[in-house]
């Protein structure tokens, strides 16, 4: 490069044009190459048929008070808890300052359907499924869910209270289509 520049020193205008052309060509080549990579990367993202399965509808009337079930949404479980008044009260009397990921219980349920807690069944630590759906399973010190992988404990609002998980159990997008039919996704 240095030699070329020297050789053309007598013609500064020509040199500038040449350099400009060359740099533009290199830049366009590089950008073009980078753009070719995107289809490859994006092909790894969820495919159309996977996305098509991304909503789930179910009837909530079968879940008795105090009972918890899990339903499948996008290949993973979602916990549905019909909470007892005691469980709701326990969730609501917690001070926000005590929480690692501060959220009130009201923010995590649908207004008017406060007794139903619907949260993702995926531990926010490393993706294991916490225990606590069945009565026979451990629910941890806060009466919610207990993750067997690394000991994260969630309360009756699905909020992280103890252990390594950084965030509360996620609340998926929920819509009550009727009084008893819920759409997730």
């Amino acid at each position: 490069m240095a030699n070329t520049a020297h050789a053309h020193a007598a013609d500064p205008a020509g040199e500038t044009r040449r350099d400009f052309l060359l740099h533009t060509t290199i830049a366009m080549g590089a950008v073009g190459g980078a753009m070719m990579v995107w289809p490859l990367i994006h092909s790894m993202n969820p495919a159309a048929d996977t996305l098509a399965l991304s909503t789930t509808e179910f009837n909530i009337s079968g879940v008795a008070e105090g009972q918890r079930i899990s339903v499948m949404w996008r290949g993973s479980p979602v916990f549905v808890a019909h909470r007892t008044p005691a469980e709701i009260e326990a969730a609501r009397k917690v001070q926000l300052s005590e929480l690692r990921d501060p959220q009130t219980d009201e923010q995590r349920v649908t207004k008017g359907k406060d007794k139903y807690l619907i949260v993702s069944g995926i531990c926010t630590h490393f993706g294991c499924i916490p225990q606590g759906v069945k009565v026979t399973e451990p629910r941890g010190e806060f009466g919610g869910w207990f993750c067997p992988c690394h000991g994260s404990q969630y309360d009756t609002s699905g909020r992280i209270r103890k252990g390594p998980a950084p965030r509360n159990l996620a609340v998926p997008p929920i819509k009550f289509l009727t009084d008893t039919t819920v759409l997730i996704g």
């Binding site: 225990q131 069945k134 026979t136 399973e137 451990p138 629910r139």
Partner: peptide, 13 residues
């Protein structure tokens, strides 16, 4: 208590 619960879990699954 935790132990009994754990035991029950293992049995259930």
């Amino acid at each position: 208590m935790k132990k009994i619960l754990l035991a029950a879990t293992a049995a259930f699954t």
